[in-house]
Amino acid sequence: MIKEILARIKQGYRTLPFPFEKIKLSERYKGYPKLDFSNLKESEIEELLSVCPNSCIYKDAGKINLDLGNCTFCAICEKKLPQAVKFSKDWSMAFSSREDLILSQDTKKKSYVLREEIRKLFGRSLRLRQVSAGGCNACEADCNVLGTPAFDMGRFGIQFVASPRHADGILITGPVSENMYTALIKTYRAVPDPKIAIAVGACAIGGGIYRNLPKVKGISEEINIDLYIPGCPPNPITILDALLRFIGRIK
């Protein structure tokens, strides 16, 4: 036992001060982007529209949009046209609707709109069944670490559970492969009402890297998504921040 105690002393107290202090991520971290398309030449606009591997940058009614939902934060666009796209260090990204993820140059960052009934129901205790559906397992990994001492989401009453019957909702990762389509719906149905659903990562939100592949079906319309957390994968701190906003622990 003495060795365990010594090791514990050596390892120290390692839970991050979040949400009481802002966390600084690595220099090269890419967070919420700032956009400015105003000074682009015609040729640069064309380049911008064709550069993204996931076709996240597109023109709609004469306006250039960036779909943060499908963005993998690869920063290829930033590298090509730094004057147009600049990724900030802001890792806080939680959105209540899919439209909030479509950014244009004059979009002000939308903050998550807290729903009073969610705070009342789940504000002190939220149990989630994670369903992995056709992704690459990195989103899952970054959800998993929320249980480690560094993030310790248990202290906020949030926990992953094994059975959907014990859960208040599901947290979906992956683009939903054909072979997981039914299993995902069944898992969702197994969660007792009232229930919520959360989409984590570009794949789950819009297909991400696997967008429009024939074997990828996307989340069924039956499942209503209450919270979107973009990234590929989102940094764990982004996920934790989003969950805490969702249940009203951070305003």
Partner: peptide
């Protein structure tokens, strides 16, 4: 269950999607 068809996709999609896939 995780089958998303990467091998077929990498040859049919735009080249710039290959590495990320």
């Amino acid at each position: 269950y995780q089958h998303r068809g990467i091998e077929n996709a990498v040859i049919s999609v735009d080249k710039k999607r290959m590495l990320p896939m």
